[in-house]
C-alpha cells in the first residue's frame, strides 16, 4: 500500500510539472486530490488495510496529501507569474502617439512677471498699493517735482484727456500712487506720519510709435520706502537683495548715477547679465550688464507733497518695467506680442 502511495505521489507531481494554465491546474486538483482521486481512494479504503499497517498507511497518505497541496500552491504561483509576465510582454501601447489634449488656461506673461516681482517685494515687506490710471497733472507731474516745461509734460510725450485742458493725463508711471499713498498714510497721523513700504504695480502710458521695442502702454512696478532712518545704503542693500531673489543668488549689481525729477540722489541699477553670467551675449549686447531699474532717494519736494517733512523723513523709491523683465527672461524680441494676445504666444507661458 505504501508502494502505491509513492506511485500516486510520483504520478501526480509528474503531471503537475507540465501544467501551464489555471484551468489545467483545477483539473489536476480534482484528478489528484478530489473525491474520486486515487489518493482519496486510499483514504476511503483505509479500513481494509491490516490493522497493524493502518497507522503507517494513514500517516503516509496524509504526507502525500500535504505534499501534493504544497506542490499545487507553488505551481499555481508559478503559473500566475508566468501569465503576468506574458501579458506584460504582449500588452503595450505606442507611447509616441500624442496625448489627449487637455483644455487648460493660463496667466498672461506680463501678469506672471508682475506677480513674481510683487511676491518678492512682498516677502521683503513692500505691500501692494494700487491707484488710478487716469491722473491729474498735479499727481502725475507737479507733486513729483517735474518742473513746468519738462519734456514729459508736453503733448508729444504723454497722452492727455480731451476736454480737461491738459489737467488730466494717462499716468506715465505709477509714481502718482506714491503721492496718494503718502497722503493716505500721513492723514492717519498728520503729526507723526507712519513709515511706508509699498510696491506700486500697474499700467502706464506714453505717447510713442508702436514698434517692436516701444509701446504706448506698459506695466511698471515701483517701490517706495519712507521712514525716519532710511539711507542710500539701505536702497543699495534692499535692491541688491531684490535682484538676487529675482535673478538668482549670484546676480551682481552695480549702481550708476542717473537723473529723475522725483529722486535725489538718483541711480540706475544694472544687474550682471543673468543669461550669460556676465560673459557677454546678444541680450546684454556683450556688455555683461543689463539695465534693470531706476532708483533714488525720494526728493524733498516729493516728501513734502506727500505730507512728510523732508527734514525728518527720508525714503527711497525705485521703478522697473515689467514687460522688459519678461522679455529678458523669455528672450522675447518684440514687445508688441504682449498686447497682441495671440494664442500662439500666450500658450507658451
Amino acid at each position: 500500500m505504501l508502494e502505491k502511495l509513492n506511485e500516486i505521489q510520483a504520478a501526480a507531481l509528474d503531471a503537475l510539472e507540465s501544467i501551464t494554465d489555471e484551468e489545467a491546474l483545477q483539473a489536476w486538483k480534482s484528478a489528484h486530490t478530489g473525491r474520486s482521486s486515487d489518493l482519496m481512494g486510499v483514504f476511503k479504503g483505509i479500513g481494509k488495510v491490516a490493522k497493524e499497517d493502518r497507522g503507517k498507511v494513514g500517516k503516509r497518505a496524509n504526507e502525500v496529501k500535504v505534499a501534493l497541496e504544497a506542490a499545487l500552491t507553488a505551481r499555481k504561483s508559478e503559473v500566475k507569474d508566468a501569465a503576468l509576465a506574458r501579458s506584460l510582454e504582449e500588452d503595450h501601447l505606442d507611447v509616441t502617439l500624442p496625448g489627449r489634449p487637455f483644455r487648460h488656461g493660463g496667466i498672461h506673461p506680463a501678469t506672471q512677471t508682475l506677480c513674481r516681482t510683487l511676491k518678492i517685494l512682498g516677502d521683503m515687506g513692500f505691500q501692494v498699493y494700487t491707484s488710478r490710471e487716469v491722473e491729474s497733472d498735479a499727481y502725475n507731474f507737479e507733486h513729483l517735482n517735474f518742473p513746468p516745461g519738462h519734456p514729459a509734460r508736453e503733448m508729444q510725450d504723454s497722452f492727455y484727456i480731451e476736454g480737461s485742458d491738459t489737467a488730466q493725463v494717462m499716468r506715465t508711471h505709477t509714481s502718482p500712487g506714491q503721492i496718494r499713498a503718502m497722503r493716505e498714510y500721513a492723514a492717519s497721523n498728520p503729526e507723526n506720519p507712519p513709515p511706508i513700504r509699498i510696491s506700486l504695480p500697474g499700467m502706464c502710458y506714453r505717447s510713442e510709435q508702436i514698434t517692436h521695442r516701444s509701446e504706448i502702454q506698459f506695466n511698471q512696478v515701483e517701490g517706495l520706502a519712507v521712514g525716519e532712518n532710511i539711507t542710500f545704503s539701505d536702497l543699495k542693500g534692499t535692491l541688491s537683495d531684490f535682484a538676487r531673489r529675482m535673478f538668482g543668488q549670484h546676480a551682481r549689481t552695480r549702481f550708476r548715477a542717473q537723473h529723475f525729477p522725483f529722486t535725489e540722489p538718483s541711480a540706475e541699477m544694472d544687474v550682471e547679465c543673468f543669461l550669460c553670467g556676465g560673459e557677454g551675449c546678444n541680450v546684454c549686447k556683450k556688455a555683461g550688464w543689463l539695465e534693470i531699474l531706476g532708483c533714488g532717494m525720494v526728493h524733498p519736494n516729493v516728501l513734502t507733497a506727500g505730507g512728510y517733512d523732508p527734514s525728518r523723513y527720508t525714503g527711497f523709491a525705485f521703478g522697473m518695467g515689467t514687460e522688459r523683465q519678461a522679455m529678458l527672461r523669455h528672450n522675447i524680441k518684440d514687445i508688441r506680442y504682449f498686447w497682441g494676445n495671440d494664442s500662439r504666444f500666450l500658450e507658451q507661458f
Binding site: G125, Q127, Y185, P194, P195, I196, R197, A225, G227, E228, N229, I230, T231, F232, S233, D234, K236, G237, T238, S240, D241, R254, F255, R256, A257, A267
Partner: peptide
Amino acid sequence: YDKIPETRLADQLP
C-alpha cells in the same frame, strides 16, 4: 556710488 556700502533696512516696519 560703488563705495557706498549695502545695508538692509533697519527702519521700523510700517
